[in-house]
Design a protein around this nucleic acid. Structure first.
Lengths: 153, 153
DNA sequence: TAGCTAAATGCGAATGATTTGTATTAGCTG
DNA sequence: CAGCTAATACAAATCATTCGCATTTAGCTA
């Protein structure tokens, strides 16, 4: 009972922290934005804009608004965009501290996403997927950054 | 001189091998397909369909044909599709043997792609990018496979 | 080598996720 | 509470990619 209370308290605090971060970034606290943050806070995604729109937004809200909210929330660092190469951008809460770094394990058939917390040797990386009973396992590893030429320009 | 000849001979052989693989997969040897294979063989990509169309295809050829060729070449295992999450699919020659496994290092500004041959500990993985003078380094690591539920179905 | 047939292409239109223009609405600051 | 803007709704545009269909052609066969 006390354990549950602690968990709940921690949960509420973290959601408030997210809202404070919104204010810190000069983002107005609008209905759609709050609903998006709450949805991503309470459900582990990542989710496409359309999934967020259909599953989590109760009061009517335009899909274009969802897209614009996600852009501003991403720019503010509250939300992270994930690209799995299937034509849909997905979004999840961005946990800024490195302790929450994680990868994804996506079923190529049903598109289900599992969180992968482990982080070990790259050459053995597929075993995380196989350990979970996945077959036809492969992984995508791509680097991003600003190249020396562009830094100079 | 003899060195150069050897290199050239090897080059020709490998390109011929690719053409043989096309035939083995019951793909007709059409102009667009040959040009795409040659382009990817002579230039290290990966390239978008539009880049291939504009840069490498001399004789007139419809962009839709490029897309269709890339699909059939991918199905035949000759070409690999890469997704960097910027809204463009890119293609490169698929080297089936594991010895040619590599990753990519993409400049987020000019979209230049560098090949990353190293394959070490995941937690130190960003150092490959930093070692090349890139800043704002991040990486994308996603897993793909068929989940137990879908295997059963 | 001519002819056959399915596969491949060209061209135009469609698709679908995402973006954008613009008038209207509604946070926030004083 | 007024006023200034940012944010929203709605509709239309964008843009990579796909598709339909008529025409062409690669590769096989006689």
């Amino acid at each position: 009972m006390s354990k549950k209370a602690v968990v709940k308290e921690k949960t509420v605090k973290t959601l408030e922290t997210l809202f404070q971060e919104m204010k810190k970034n000069h983002l107005r606290m609008t209905g759609p934005r709050k609903m998006i943050i709450e949805a991503l806070f309470e459900n582990h995604g990542p989710f496409t804009a359309e999934e967020i729109h259909k599953k989590f937004i109760r009061s009517s809200c335009d899909l274009a608004t969802i897209y614009r909210c996600l852009v501003s929330l991403e720019q503010a660092g509250l939300v992270r965009k994930c690209e799995f190469g299937d034509g849909f951008a997905r979004y999840e809460l961005a946990n800024n501290d490195q302790s929450h770094h994680h990868h994804h394990l996506i079923c190529t058939e049903c598109k289900k996403v599992e969180i992968v917390e482990e982080c070990e040797i790259e050459s053995h990386i597929d075993r995380f997927a196989k350990k979970r009973g996945f077959t036809s396992v492969s992984h995508m590893l791509e680097f991003f950054g600003i190249c020396p030429d562009c830094q100079a320009a």
